[in-house]
Computed example of a mutant assay.
Amino acid sequence: MTIIELTPPAVEPLTIAEIRAHLRLDGEEEDGLLLALATVAREHLERETGLVLAARDFRLCLDDWPEDGILTIARGPVQAVRVVTVYDGEGEPQVVDLDGHLLDGQARPARLWLRETPAPGRVMNGIEVEFSAGFGESGADVPETLKRAMLLHVAAMYACRGVVAADAQPAVVPPGYDRLIAPFCRRGL
Rank of each mutant, 00 (worst) to 15 (best):
A110C: 06
G69I: 09
D97Y: 06
A165Q: 14
V84M: 06
T7V: 07
E130W: 15
C160Q: 14
V83Q: 15
W65H: 06
E137D: 13
S132V: 09
G27R: 10
N125F: 08
L98F: 06
S132F: 07
D99K: 04
P9S: 10
T117N: 08
F131H: 13
A140W: 11
L33P: 08
A10G: 07
H101N: 08
L35E: 10
L152W: 06
P143T: 09
L14S: 03
D178Y: 01
E43C: 01
W113P: 11
Y158G: 05
E48W: 00
V52I: 08
E46Q: 08
C61T: 06
R20A: 07
D97H: 11
R111N: 13
P170Q: 13
R20H: 00
A155H: 05
P93F: 15
V11T: 04
V96I: 04
I73D: 06
I4N: 11
E29N: 06
R20L: 10
V172A: 04
R148P: 00
M157N: 04
G89L: 13
T39V: 03
G100H: 04
T7C: 04
E116D: 07
R42M: 15
R56F: 01
Q169D: 05
I127F: 07
H153D: 10
E137L: 13
A168S: 05
E48G: 03
A140N: 09
P8G: 10
T145S: 06
E137C: 04
T2P: 10
F58A: 01
P66M: 04
L23F: 13
H101F: 14
R186Q: 07
T85R: 14
E90D: 11
A119K: 07
S138G: 11
W113T: 15
V129L: 10
P170A: 12
C61P: 01
V83R: 12
P174K: 14
G162H: 01
F58V: 02
A80P: 12
L189E: 05
G105R: 05
A140K: 08
P93T: 15
V52L: 09
V81K: 09
R56C: 07
L62G: 12
D31N: 00
A171N: 00
G27N: 12
H101M: 14
G50P: 11
